[in-house]
Design a protein around this nucleic acid. Sequence first.
DNA 1: ATTGAAAAGACCTCAAC
DNA 2: GTTGAGGTCTTTTCAAT
Lengths: 144, 144
Amino acid sequence: MELDATDWNIISILQAGYENNNTIARKLGLSEGTIRARIKRLREANVMQIRALINPEVLDNKQLALIAMRVAESRLLETKAEEVARLPNVLSVSIASGRYDLIAEVLVDSNRGLVRFLTEELSGVEGVISSESFLMLKSYNKFV
Amino acid sequence: MELDATDWNIISILQAGYENNNTIARKLGLSEGTIRARIKRLREANVMQIRALINPEVLDNKQLALIAMRVAESRLLETKAEEVARLPNVLSVSIASGRYDLIAEVLVDSNRGLVRFLTEELSGVEGVISSESFLMLKSYNKFV
DNA sequence: ATTGAAAAGACCTCAAC
DNA sequence: GTTGAGGTCTTTTCAAT
């Protein structure tokens, strides 16, 4: 999908925080209907989504962590990334350059959630040959 | 700030995607005004924000990366995290457990953006004694 | 903190360009 | 793809509990 300058203008306004269509229309000198049509297009193309994000600092019984993994064979990278992305508690997965092949962001119960994720969920993904976990102990400007 | 069950119900509805107050009110058996007051409280306390997120896969000239750093002294962790969080292109920073002390998420220009960030921005933060970069080559369920 | 009613405002439909 | 006019739905205000 091709994004033009108007699309980017709308995106950058909405990325800073929700604004209604009329306000955006006034800022960009366009009609409300145009803004609405553009936003609809962007959402339907899965380019943009509008939703609530929480500050993980306030999540008392939840722990945010990164799980960095190595995969047995490079040709499996995409399928393994998809498999990990489907596991419970996984927020997102990326294929990475560098020391690790895949890096996942997980939100688990503070108590035994991470152990459970590693032993019961991630262990079931064949071809993931090692993992290293990083707890996010305190975050700045992080919303999930 | 203390969050009760109603707050969490509202958050989990809005996290899945924006819904209007009346719809949420009906789902939870409360009035529209109550939902609105709760959302206002959550936003003002910086617990929740509602905004647009973009799929980094569609950002043709931007590159998402993680920068994992070590800090000279543990007592500096929080101040260094704040300093890094203020650098341009930095989306978020976390103090981490494990091999690294700080992990930042950055969105840089594909061309020379990462080199420029490392040599011109991060190098200016004293006390950050090493860094390792991971390019996010392909992401699943990741929105920034 | 929650509610109901009324007013203000935002959003949607549709016909036209 | 964009627009304006009109109708509908959502949000805001505010007095009361």
